[in-house]
Amino acid sequence: MMEDPEPLPGLYERVQATAEHLRKSLASELQYPKVAIVCGSGLGGLADTINPEPRVEIPYKDVPGFAVSTVPGHAGKLVFGTIGRIKTPVMLLVGRAHFYEGHAMAQVTFATRVCKLLGVDTMIVTNAAGGLNEIYSVGDIVMLNDHLNLAGLVGINPLIGPNDPQFGPRFPPLSDAYNLHLRRLTHNAWSALHPTPSRTLHEGIYAFVAGPTYETRAECRMLRLLGADVVGMSTVPEIIVARHCGIRVLAFSLITNKAVLENGVRGDAEVLSGMSAVDVDDFLSMGRANHEEVLEAGRAAAEDMQALVKAILEDLYSS
């Protein structure tokens, strides 16, 4: 049997150096956060979840090894503080690096490994996603219970290459990637916060695609047939590395647009006969995703997401 090759030179040491660099900027009560919260597109308002003091903000550009966020809606900063009455130490990653920005998977997930060496045991990951499930509406929240790693199935996986056992095992299982206890806490918290909710909390399956293009109609239908409820361009690499490191995971998608599942109009279709060019463009653009809508839906859901995260962490760390 072939021996596992040596781990990538210096990866653990680089992550460790970054963790130590950050600790030097933090007061003692913030140096070992228990929870990391990744804020997806339009969800940077989750930074308002933490208590006003103590609070430390560090731009990604000042963190060794971190990629600078280039996507609108991703501020690109770390925020350290405490949350709730019991003042649980947390760190927020306001914005993330994406594979489609040209970063290697090791770079996309570098921050997750830093979280591990800082002491994080729980990671809450959020994203904006397209709704594939026909019963979902824009503004609904989907708590993930599984995923389809489409990019990983064709070789784009953050664990490809030599394994470093200081982070985790060569072949980590993902059958329980989305922590059941955390999901049960979430349902209880949601019911307590929203006896008559204005938006719906679902559980569903996330399909990870590389991006940056939004999916075609045929791709949306394929993903739905494969069992996906939502589709997006992030989150799964972070979750794979978090689970490899032994961090438990809770993940949410905010539905910011509904994917178009209907067939496209054929060029010989009678439905377009007699329509002006403007009318034709309006007809074909129905359901078309755009990033501005993503950000607006995120702003609208921010308060509900903030209250939910606070309630979950109160339940989790109050015992």
Rank of each mutant, 00 (worst) to 15 (best):
T112I: 13
A75E: 14
L93T: 03
R85M: 08
K77T: 07
T82G: 04
Q107K: 10
L118K: 06
T88R: 11
D121E: 15
R113S: 02
I83K: 03
G95F: 01
A106V: 07
A106K: 11
D121A: 13
V120L: 13
L118R: 06
T112V: 14
A106R: 08
V71L: 08
D121N: 15
H98L: 12
G119K: 13
L118Y: 05
V108P: 00
T109L: 00
V90T: 01
H103F: 12
A111Q: 02
T82W: 07
M105F: 02
T122A: 08
E101L: 13
L78D: 06
V94Q: 14
T82L: 00
N127M: 09
A128G: 13
V79M: 10
G95C: 05
G84W: 01
V79I: 15
V120T: 08
T126G: 06
G76I: 04
L117K: 02
F80I: 02
E101K: 10
C115A: 13
L117E: 13
M105Y: 01
T122Y: 10
V120D: 07
G130A: 04
I83Y: 06
L118P: 01
V125R: 01
I86R: 15
H98R: 10
A104Q: 12
K87W: 04
T126I: 12
G76A: 06
A75H: 12
L93Q: 12
R85I: 09
M105G: 00
Q107I: 00
A106G: 14
G81Y: 07
G95P: 02
P89Q: 07
D121P: 03
T109S: 04
V71D: 07
P72S: 14
G73H: 03
G130W: 05
R113C: 01
A97K: 05
G130F: 06
V79Q: 11
V125L: 14
K87C: 09
A75I: 12
A106I: 05
G102K: 02
V125N: 10
T112A: 08
A104C: 10
E101N: 13
M123L: 15
T112L: 02
R96G: 03
T109I: 00
N127E: 09
I86E: 15
A106S: 14
G95T: 02
V90Y: 04
V71H: 04
K87T: 08
K77D: 00
